[in-house]
Design a protein around this nucleic acid. Structure first.
Length: 556
RNA sequence: GCGCUCGUAGCUCAAUUUGGACAGAGCGUCUGACUACGGAUCAGAAGGUUGGGGGUUCGAGUCCCUCCGAGCGCGCCA
């Protein structure tokens, strides 16, 4: 049985009141959705709606007049917690509430807990395959790969919390010229000569060649070595894949031939100039693209089309590919091939992320494994740790270019926002530990007078906690995990402010207020843990005190 | 040249997809705050014609056009 707190959220109540008022005042048709938001400025109330602005034209009313009408009707029968409703600005309807609605939020957070709060079911069990990283298995993972790893893994966490069934997948391009060049480079280094110009020139090639047994098949040995290396680097960042798919295996199993046959059957492929072409121009691409080269070898495109069909065949209903922006020219041709197989365009979503620029001081480090001068994901994790590394990647929207200057990251590692958030969690735990030491117990929530929570700092924490459900939903729908990062920093900030101004366990705090604040602290813990778990960042119970010496060392 | 993406405070970014009220944080700078719970904290100040211009709208950082600047892409490579 749903709790009364849960089933009637404030937003729903206010929207219902607005809808009723609109109907009474004769607005027709009623808008499909009524928007209500939390204004940035306190004098605009706790909640605000622009319905009067939106409906004015259709209703042939002046926005402020319509708003005034709504206000009067709502004032006649105000929903719970509503103290005052007023017209403001060009025709906003602003609701001023008592603090009770925020105390309801606290009760809801506690009732639903880490497992249940800010959870959605709009994913409706949809199996979604998220493919990310998928770097060629020809070397270790560079720093840029970490961005896709942190993004993809966190997106999956968020999707899962919204009722999707995500599947984490890594695609191995384990055949073709890149693999050949990789093998040739290993052999060259083993024999003490320079790899070919179009081969791989990173330092790791020499190191790996030295490890390689003399009788090993360089291609196979190197492939296994690279896979292991990449998997270990990802594991250090807390990322594990459900499936590592192999291009080679797709060829071997006949899936690639089958895809080609289907494309031919559907007249989406044709022969010309000795090659086989995809009618990608029909699917929105600039021109048709080669599927099978005139030497009989498939290009990258054909196995990739087969691969996407395979992902669907394995049970996924939605495919999300996370690609670097340098591949954007490839989007149309893959989409064309995907649709040419008879799939719906909506089933394939390609998220493009701007590339990471890696700097070492003033000089840019190249990201190409072929060029050498490589900065590895491991290097970053060594430098700042997994939590800070992950947080760094999740700080920004994928659409922004990200510059990681290793010198700056190292020098400022103690200022990484991750510590600000983790410290908030450690403080929560510290309060609980101190309370336990002193034998102070939290009375059952139902017996605690939450009305005692009326300080701006306390209410700010509750307002932030209220937003988590919306943030998780938005992060999932917009494929934007960084929104959660932004939110958790806000919650940590609100809590630090509360902690600073509102003593909890101090002897001069009356027991009822102390109890209310302890519950507020517990609700904060729940919010922090939910967000940190989704972000894949640890929530330590205590953090070692930093001394100036530690800070010095960290810079070294 | 064509296409895609981006341009917000000194720096790094959020808000842009779904138009909403006076554009928010952090870092850096300056000034302050604990002998009670952890100062990895808190408060205040300074800092913006949201790259320029035009348009749509009651309302534009957000939508449209144009110009400027940056990155990337335009292979029978992956």
């Amino acid at each position: 049985m749903p709790s009364p707190v849960r089933c009637r959220m404030i937003r729903t109540r206010l929207i219902d009141a607005l809808r009723a008022a609109l109907a009474e005042s004769g607005v027709e048709p009623l808008p499909a959705t009524i928007e209500i938001g939390r204004p940035a400025r306190a004098e605009h109330g706790d909640w605000s709606s622009n319905v009067a602005l939106v409906c004015a034209k259709a209703a042939s009313r002046r926005p402020r007049d319509l708003a005034q009408d709504l206000v009067e009707r709502i004032t006649a029968r105000p929903p719970a917690h509503v103290r005052r409703v007023e017209v403001a600005g060009p025709g906003f309807v602003n609701f001023h509430l008592d603090h009770g609605w925020l105390h309801d939020v606290l009760r809801q957070v506690i009732a639903e807990g880490v497992a249940g709060y800010a959870r959605h079911d709009f994913g409706a069990g949809t199996a979604v395959n998220v493919e990310f990283v998928s770097a060629n298995p020809t070397g270790p993972l560079h720093v840029g790969g970490g961005r896709w790893a942190a993004y993809g893994d966190t997106l999956c966490n968020i999707l899962a919390r919204c009722g999707y069934a995500p599947h984490r997948e890594y695609y191995l391009n384990d055949r073709g010229r890149q693999m050949d060049a990789f093998a040739e480079s290993l052999i060259a280094r083993r024999e003490g000569v320079e790899p070919p110009d179009d081969g791989y020139h990173g330092d790791y090639i020499g190191e790996w060649a030295a490890e390689m047994p003399g009788d090993a098949d360089a291609g196979e040995w190197g492939y296994a070595r690279a896979r292991r290396d990449v998997a270990e680097s990802l594991a250090r960042l807390g990322v594990r894949f459900d499936t590592w798919s192999s291009e080679r295996e797709l060829v071997r199993s006949g899936a690639v031939d089958a895809a080609l046959a289907t494309l031919r059957d559907r007249d989406a492929a044709y022969d010309a100039d000795g090659a086989v072409w995809l009618r990608s121009a029909d699917g929105g691409d600039d021109k048709d693209r080669v599927l099978v080269r005139s030497d009989g070898e498939p290009t990258y495109l054909l196995p990739d089309i087969a691969y996407h069909a395979d992902k669907l065949a394995r049970g996924s209903h939605l495919l999300i590919d996370v690609w670097g922006a340098d591949h954007h020219g490839y989007v149309e041709r893959l989409t064309a091939g995907f649709c040419a197989l008879g799939n719906r365009r909506e089933q394939l979503e390609i998220v493009l992320g701007q590339l990471v620029t890696v700097m070492r001081g003033a000089t840019e480090a190249k990201i190409s494994k072929r060029a050498g001068n490589l900065v590895l994901l491991d290097d970053l994790v060594d430098l700042v740790g997994a939590d800070a590394a992950r947080m760094t990647f999740l700080l920004q929207s994928l659409a922004s270019r990200q510059t990681i200057d290793l010198d700056v990251v190292a020098a400022q590692s103690m200022e990484n926002p991750v510590f600000y958030v983790q410290y908030a969690h450690a403080r929560v735990c510290s309060l609980a530990a101190t309370a336990a030491e002193r034998g102070i117990e939290r009375p059952p929530l139902a017996e605690v007078p939450l009305g005692a929570l009326d300080q701006a700092r306390e209410l700010a924490v509750l307002r932030t906690l209220h937003a988590l459900g919306d943030v998780v939903g938005e992060a999932a729908r917009e494929r934007a995990p960084h929104k959660l990062t932004t939110w958790v920093r806000e919650l940590a900030g609100a809590f630090h402010g509360f902690y600073h101004d509102c003593p909890v366990l101090r002897s001069d705090v009356a027991p009822p207020l102390r109890a209310a604040r302890l519950w507020l602290t517990e609700a904060t813990r729940i919010g922090l843990v939910i967000a940190l778990e989704l972000l894949g960042v640890s929530a330590p119970e205590r953090m070692d005190t930093l001394t100036p010496d530690d800070a010095e060392e960290a810079v070294e």
